[in-house]
Each structure stands twice: as structure tokens, then as C-alpha cells.
Write a protein that binds this DNA or RNA. Sequence first.
DNA 1: CCTGATTTTGATATCGGTAACAACAGAATT
DNA 2: AATTCTGTTGTTACCGATATCAAAATCAGG
Lengths: 346, 346
Amino acid sequence: MPRRSSEDSSKRNGSARMRDVAVRAGVSTMTVSRVLNEPGKVSEEMRERVLKAVREIGYLPNHLAGSLSSNRSTTIGLIVPSIDNSIYTQTVKGLSEVLKRSGFQLMIAESGYDPNEEEELITVFLSHRVGGLVLHSTEHTPQAIEKIRKSGIPVVENGNIPKEPLDMVVSYSNRDASYAMTMHLGRLGYRKIAFASLYSVHNDRSQDRLKGYLAALKQLGHEPDPRMVLETGRGLAAGAEVVARVMQSVPEVDALFCAGEVLAAGALFECQRRNWSVPGRIALASFDDVDLLRHVSPSITTLRLPRYDIGERTARILLSRIIDGADHLRGSVVDLKFEVIQREST
Amino acid sequence: MPRRSSEDSSKRNGSARMRDVAVRAGVSTMTVSRVLNEPGKVSEEMRERVLKAVREIGYLPNHLAGSLSSNRSTTIGLIVPSIDNSIYTQTVKGLSEVLKRSGFQLMIAESGYDPNEEEELITVFLSHRVGGLVLHSTEHTPQAIEKIRKSGIPVVENGNIPKEPLDMVVSYSNRDASYAMTMHLGRLGYRKIAFASLYSVHNDRSQDRLKGYLAALKQLGHEPDPRMVLETGRGLAAGAEVVARVMQSVPEVDALFCAGEVLAAGALFECQRRNWSVPGRIALASFDDVDLLRHVSPSITTLRLPRYDIGERTARILLSRIIDGADHLRGSVVDLKFEVIQREST
DNA sequence: CCTGATTTTGATATCGGTAACAACAGAATT
DNA sequence: AATTCTGTTGTTACCGATATCAAAATCAGG
């Protein structure tokens, strides 16, 4: 038995169907579909007749039905470690703006820095049949990798440049950026450069930043000192704690490179509280250029990373793959440029 | 001619269909569907047989098809003015965490503070057949309101408590919060209290904050002074500009209430640069309690708003409507509490 | 052991669209 | 004038699931 008489063309659910538009315009549903999706293939007259009916009825196409039937999707899944990290928001904005222009939507979820949670979310997104995936993390469970491969949809990794990309990558090199800043400090004449980052377990960005720091020390001919490599949690308080810790354990430290803008700001505020002159007593450098670092005094030397661009390029490359079927882009790695911004704190 | 032989049960697209699982388990698709959605209605034996087949095939349900057929959706649409506003991220997090637990997904888009853009996005979300909508703005075009009404889906407004709610509201009162802080300053003995906010055109939050300020001044018996009511743009620089402007035009000002945490921080940094003692020369108060305000020195007096709670409650109330069909919640207004946090800056 | 109530399972139509091909008309070619 | 081409519109069979109702199997009670 039918669930509803198929002749019933009146509104029931609030929304009208394409069928209703077709009847009103005196054409077939295919013509309506064409007017809405490939207007060029329909005669002027039909187009107007159909659009008039669409307007009069207040017809809203059903994307679910369209995607199901055409096996195409205008939804992109994005997984970030944490939504409230100010750093990602610029990237999300870049993504969102470009996607919106092409009529694509963003589904966002947070993995809480946990690969298993990420896998779960990937599964959900795949079952929503997203047209593409954007992952901030570059660390995935084997099952997650398997599922993505099997699905065949294009993926962009964003947070770092992994040794073994899943598919496409749009990022900057955390290692190179960290190296560049450390070298910058070395060239400015600092002899005892400490390094602070977030805990590096399950965080390849932190790991790479540490590698860059160590490589630069070697290049500079400085001896690495375990007491000057610190790891800590998130938040301004962590930055405060870190600077206090290193000043305590290595009084002769003359510079602190914080691989994270929140840590750097926290460190600066602590220095202000303790009356440690910056950069007189200790120089401070940061990662990522946020408004805050430019406006505190002293303003903080930092790295300008292409956060917004990453989102923008990610969207573009994904759309090329989805819309134009640009298969030659499979496996592309886009390594975006960064910049050292010298300010008062060094 | 068929698009694909309907007998072909092998994998083609990467993903298997429910049909394939059914064949493998030797049951009908309805039984598979039941095992996945209403396990209680299926016998122990069937359940195991089907789940085994699901595992072996690596079957992933197709949500598009499921939603289309059942006319239910597990997607919630969220429209924020701007994704990179640190204030919303807490709310988004609260929303996201609760929704995820119930297997719902979030579709996010930004309206850029423009009601027409918001209307456009609402249309897109409706055509994606979202199960509910969350709007940060409380200002909508008549067409947007009409479309939402017609669709019949539940909606929550989040950014303020509007006079004429669309449906449900979960927020705090910007007017009351602003009133409370102004009264607090008055009780502390400040006589010349200035007020700074973002431009209030198309921003009813700013408008309400101004109303609260003016109401408090009246209550305190202070004469309102147009020179002490400032509007400006976003960013730390705007905060700096605002404090400089008011000190210039009204030298006897003794407190500045910034209705926005970025403005307040910008104002503080400018005071530090100019060596205006805070609160000695001028007191500063802020709106919204972010980590930064607690860690600068002097730490800044501010309002603690229930950002995360708003997201959480919004998700809950929406889920009640969608899952439990709790129609009695239609039109609910949840007015969450805020708090004045007294710190060193006043 | 049979009958009616209850629980499981399946057949079928449908959700609202689109792909693929057929049908037809007027334009272009020979 | 017959034939081929091109451009428009319609017909039909699906996309991959679920609602509904019917059929089959199991259970209870007499």
C-alpha cells in the first residue's frame, strides 16, 4: 500500500515537490529539473514558465533527493581538533567563503585531538555522503585511512605536511617555520634559546616544531639542553608557567621561543607581572600572527602563517577535484609560505 | 533503460548497499534496516546474522537515502555572523558536543552580519532539509521568517532575547547584563562612565547593551552625555582608538565600559602605552569573560556570560523538539544568568 | 490440538529527485 | 524532396533507504 496517494499534488509537509511545479507549469519534472540545474538546455519560453511556477508555489528543491539520485554531494566534511582554537577559525573562514560561492556547505565536527574520535566522525561524514573531506590532523587510525580510500572521495590534510599524505595536502611546514624562527633568534645574537610547545604526544605539529628548533640549534652550533625544551598544556596560564620554569632552572636563558601564540602571550604577561624586561632580560618569540601579539607592549616577534590561505586553497583544490574531476591533482602537496615578523620582543 | 542492473549486487561505487547486506545475510532489506535502527524489533538470531554481514561487507548506511525516505534529518543548521569571532566558538562547542552524542551533525555557515545573506543561507539549509536551525542573529528578513514558518522546523535564536521570538530562544539579556555592569561601576563610585560598543546598526546586541547602559545611568542619577557614548569597529586597534578618543573629548571621564572583550583589551593596551594608570586614571570594564582578561595586568573587570551553556541548552531543547516531538516547548524563552566579575581594573 | 493474540519477517510502494535514452520538431545538408 | 543533424522535451527506471500492511511463525489459553 502506498504511503501517500501519488496523485496528491497539494502541499502537506509544508514543502512542495518538483512534481507540483511541473504540473503547474504544464511540463514534465525533467524540464523543471533542467531549468533549475542546466538552464542552458531549456528554451527561453519553458524557462520562464517554470521559474514563474517555482516562484508562485515557493518551491524549494530537496537536496537530499537530488544528491541521492545524482550521486553527487555539495557537502564537505571538516574535522578540527577543537572548534574553540582561534587558530583554526581563519582557515575555516577561508574554506567557508570559497565553498559558499560554489554552493557547497560545510559540515563541521571536532575530534578533541583523538584519532579514534576522528575515525568515528569520518564514518559519520561518509555515511552522509560528503563530497570531500578536510582533516586538520595528519595522524589517523589505519581503519580511518582504509575507509577513506575505499570511499574514493578527495581529502585534504591541513595541519602539517605529513610524510605519507592520505591524498592532497595544503599546509605550511611546521618544521621549516620553527627552524626559520630559531635561526632568526640565533642571528639576532641570542645564545641560550629555550623552546616551549604543547605536549607533543599525538601532535605531529608539536613534534615537527621541535625538530625544526633542534635542527636550527645544530646549524647555529648551539648545544641542545633538555632543560630548555619545555612542553605544557593550553592556555595563558601554561605560558606563564613555562617562562617561570625556564627562568628558574636555567637562569642564563636569554630567549624563549613559544610554539603557540597563547603560550607566548601568557609568557609575556608573566614577565610583566614579575618585572622581567622583554627583551632585555629575556626575549620572546611566538608562532602564528594574531592581532593580540601586535598590540601588546612590547609587541611580539612571531611567524606569520597563511591560515586563511590554507582554507582558501583547500577549498579550491577540493572543488577542482569534485566539480572538474581534476584527477591529476590527486596527491598534490601545496606547501604555503610563511614569514618571520620581527617586533619589539626580540 | 536502467542506470545500473538492479541485480548487480557487487560493489561499484566503493560503498555497498543495504540490499547487498540483506542478500549476504539471507534476509530482506527491511530486516537489515530494523537491525540498524530498531534492534529491539528483531530476533536475536537475525540480529547477529545481519550484523555479521554488515561487518564483513563493511557496509555504511546511506544517510541521504534514509533521511529522504523517513522524512527525518539528523542535521542541524547553524548560522553565525562570523566564524572567527572567539565569542561564538564556546557556544558552537556546547552545541556540537551535545548534538554529537545524539548522532546529529552540524552544518555551519556565516552570514557576515547581513540579514539578506542569512536569508540565503536559511534557504540553502532548508533545501538540505535540516532538522532544526540555530540562528545567532535575532534580526531577519520577512522572507526568511516566512520560509522558516512554512518549513515548520524548530528554530532557536541565540544572540539576544528578541521582543518577537521566531520560535525558541536560548540566550541572556544583553540589556540586563549591560545594566548590571553599569550599576556596578556606579556603585563603585565612578561618576563619569563612558560606554563603547560596536556599531549598532543591524546589531541588536549592541543596541540592547546601549539601552542597558542608559537605563543604569538614569537609575544612578547620572546625566547621559553623547560624547561618552562611542561606537566603533572590530579589533584591538578599535579599542585603542576609543579610549584615546574619549580621554581627549571628555578628560574628566573616570571609567570606560567596553561592550566587547576585544575592545576592552585594546583599550587596556593603549592605556599601558600611554601610561594612563588603570584604574587610577581611568577604570575599564568589559563584556564577556575570556581567558585574556583574567591574565593581563591589571586584570579586567567583566561580565561572565553563559556562552557554553547557551550552546548546550540550545542543543537540548532542539533535540527535545525533534526527537521527542515536545511541542509544548514551542516558543520557549530560556533566559540564562550572567555574572559581574570584579577585578583589578575597576 | 485448535483458535486467537502476539511477535517476526517480508513484499511493495514510495520519498523527491536525476540519468539515460527515446521521441519529435525544425534546421541544415545533399 | 529526402536525409541527417541539432536542440528540446518527455518516458521510464532507477538512487538507497523506510512506512505500511500482509503473511508467517510463535505463543497462550481452553
